[in-house]
Amino acid sequence: MSLDFKFIVRLIPIMLKYSTVTIKLSLFAILLGFTLSFFIAIVVYAKVPVLNKFFKVYISFFRGTPLMAQLFCFYFGILPMFSRLVLKVSSFQAALIILSLASSAYMAESLRAAISSIHKGQMEAAQSIGMTYVQAMFRIILPQAIKVATPTLFSSFINIIKDTSLVFAIGVKEMMATAQLEGASGYRYLEAYICVLLVYWGITSLMGFFQRKIEIRLGQLVGETN
């Protein structure tokens, strides 16, 4: 059986159409997950009582369990328990919630490591001129930490994009679901999944491009010349 290029060419536009679901889901999950991870990292780094302990368990749980199991547990297990309440959660929203929570655990660890890597003298110098902890954190420490964290954060972003391929399992109609459907209709599974891989590769390459741009920009902020 030979590769049917015509099939691939015909399928690509369909995939690109459904990639908007992937991109939408990824972007929202990155945005929500990153915001949440920011908060978690600062809480854990500053050792805020109670919350610190809570987020340590949170990180351990979301990093230590499979995303697919989290999705199933949430969508088929937890959500139906609350189905009588007003809130009606679509499969897209459920996927977004779990992706954001799970990725925030990874990103919080990246950020925490990056914050720890900034010499403690930076914080001391900021405090010695009278800045509060929060001022020092936002004006001095975090801008430097973000630069350190950028490569690992982008790895997380890329992981989020790839992990969206799992959410078809709870019924979100995205690229994987389409590939399965189209592949099955003509027994052209190889072509269908090659399409999926190419579109994913395209999207993540774009992320890699943004990463380089951002690294250069952040480098300029501490006086690096390229």
């Binding site: 001391e124 001129i129 800045m131 004006r139």
Partner: peptide, 30 residues
């Protein structure tokens, strides 16, 4: 802290700020 100044052995200038910004930072923020 606002009324005592500290000069460290390791300098600890703010690496993400220019020389001028290092000096204005305390004036503006504090």
């Amino acid at each position: 802290r606002r009324n005592t100044g500290m000069v460290f052995q390791g300098f600890y200038l703010f690496n993400n700020k220019t020389v001028l910004q290092n000096i204005t930072e305390g004036l503006i923020v504090v």
